[in-house]
Amino acid sequence: MKLKIIKTFIFSIIFFITFGRAFAAEDLLGAHIYNELGVKALQDEAIDSAISCFEQAHRFAPRNSTIKKNLSAAYYRKGEIEYTARRLSYAERYLKVSLENDPDNIDALFLMGDLKYLSQRMNEAKEMWEKVLKLNPNHPNADLVKEKLDKLEREAKVEKDYRSTGMDRFDIRYSREGVRLSYNIRYYLQEAYRLIGGDFNHRPNNKIVVLIYDKTDFESIGEWREGAVGVYDGKIRLPLIGADFTSDRIRSIVWHEYTHVVIGDITKGSCPIWLNEGLAKWEEFAQLKGDLSLLKRAVKRDEGIPFKDLDPTFLDPADETQFELAYQESYTLANYLIRRYSKYKIRKILDRLGKGEPFESAIRYELNLSTAEFEKRWMNDLKAGKLY
């Protein structure tokens, strides 16, 4: 009986060694097959399929570093897509998994730094970007990362002691001197979220950081255009502490900058500057009518900026008069579109821009117009005094 037990035990060991090796080989073979399928899917931009294949390969061979790097790359690509689509919470979720599988994935670190920065988690953003430079000082984006770090350092120095007022959709930050002003701005933002959201049938899902500065602090953190009373660069920045503005003027500035948030969200950052600024001016002027005397004189003298030159004028604000004229012209272009074709059509055009279509294609499809005909009709109404 004892001999039989020993023989059985020895047989079990031989079986385990022999067939265990076969199972191990089968696992490695399965990992290889699924990894190859994942690589092909990733190349074809079938990201979900790639993730599924790499996950299965990882289950077969959990310690294989190549598979983990491929899985990281797939999750990074998924995060990048969500980031571009302005679904930032999803983007962060996928990038987190990417970095769990490969903590040295430079692309994921770079983009995660952007996400941390946009949500005002400055120390975490700094850590991500510094790691990019540490891993590869000669990375193609090294100069951009250095610029981001320099800007972050300037901002953090100013904003480190700012107070915060939390809201569902806004994270409002300000110095001690901005406490009272912050309450007004909070109310104006709530208005804008509801009413501008209604105008464009869109309300962003991401929480927006709003920073309220005095003029000195505002000018110390960026090279803004002289006289700027607001900026949106992923965060709304308002140099309004100590400014001698009426409540209507402050409201109009808030509405202008929040319109940029909405337009950027719909178009995924692909809106022509003149349309972006024109619609922001349209919402601003709805709160406080602006001065269009510069444009009226230019139209009378036939000295307006040609339509094709509006965006280049915004990009080179050296001539303050031309810059202001570009703003006023852009307002009348937006006004013409809304009066003649409705906000609904504006939204349809913005949707097309968000899908990567150029403006020329979008208005041809939605308005059955060429840009030349569009410019001609706008100019006719402008000269007739219908758009002031």
Score class of each variant (00 low, 15 high):
Ser330Arg: 09
Lys235Met: 11
Asp302Tyr: 01
Pro204Asp: 15
Arg347His: 09
Ser89Asn: 04
Ala125Gly: 04
Arg225Pro: 08
Val254Tyr: 06
Asn276His: 04
Gly222Val: 14
Arg251Cys: 06
Pro62Cys: 01
Ser72Glu: 10
Arg77Cys: 08
Asn101Cys: 09
His58Gln: 05
His139Glu: 13
Ile221His: 01
Arg203Phe: 02
Leu109Met: 14
Lys281Ile: 13
Ile172Ala: 02
Tyr341Lys: 09
Ala57Ser: 10
Asp316Gly: 07
Leu144Asp: 11
Ser182Phe: 08
Glu147Asn: 14
Gly30Phe: 09
Arg77Asp: 11
Asp217Phe: 06
Ala142Thr: 01
Asp150Pro: 02
Lys157Met: 11
Ile346Leu: 13
Leu109His: 11
Phe307Gly: 01
Lys268Asp: 06
Phe314Gly: 09
Pro204Ile: 14
Trp129Gln: 08
Leu350Glu: 13
Phe218Lys: 10
Ser12Val: 13
Phe170Val: 07
Tyr117Phe: 13
Tyr34Pro: 01
Tyr336Arg: 08
Thr18Met: 15
Gln56Phe: 06
Lys134Cys: 03
Ile266Gln: 10
Leu135Cys: 13
Ile253Ala: 04
Gly290Met: 13
Ile236Gln: 09
Leu181Phe: 08
Ile349Lys: 12
Gly234Glu: 00
Asp233Ala: 07
Leu195Ala: 03
Lys300Ser: 03
Phe323Glu: 04
Phe11Tyr: 15
Phe245Val: 04
Val145Arg: 07
Arg176Asn: 06
Ile51Met: 07
Leu292Pro: 07
Leu28Gln: 13
Glu147Trp: 06
Glu226Trp: 13
Lys131Gln: 09
Glu26Leu: 12
Gln328Val: 12
Ala22Trp: 15
Leu295Pro: 11
Arg364Leu: 14
Glu223Ile: 01
Arg297Leu: 06
Glu159Tyr: 14
Lys157Pro: 01
His32Val: 05
Asn141Thr: 13
Leu118Val: 04
Glu159Val: 15
Leu152Asp: 05
Arg121Cys: 02
Leu111Lys: 03
Trp255Glu: 01
Ile5Leu: 04
Ala243Trp: 03
Val39Gln: 06
Leu133Asn: 05
Arg347Gly: 06
Glu45Ala: 07
Asn368Tyr: 01
Asn105Val: 14
Ala61Val: 03
Gly197Gln: 05
Arg225Leu: 10
Ala73Lys: 09
Ser89Arg: 02
Ser49Ala: 05
Pro103Cys: 11
Leu369Ser: 02
Ile185Gln: 06
Tyr83Ile: 02
His139Trp: 14
Leu367Pro: 05
Leu240Val: 06
Asp217Glu: 15
Phe285Gln: 08
Ser49Tyr: 00
Ala298Ile: 00
Lys355Val: 02
Glu277Asn: 04
Ile5Glu: 00
Pro317Glu: 02
Ala156Pro: 00
Arg301Thr: 02
Lys96Arg: 10
Gln43Ile: 14
Met167Glu: 10
Tyr341Ser: 11
Ala326Ile: 13
Asn205Arg: 14
Asp114Gly: 03
Leu42Glu: 03
Glu223Pro: 00
Tyr331Ile: 08
Ala362Tyr: 09
Leu211Asp: 10
Val262Phe: 04
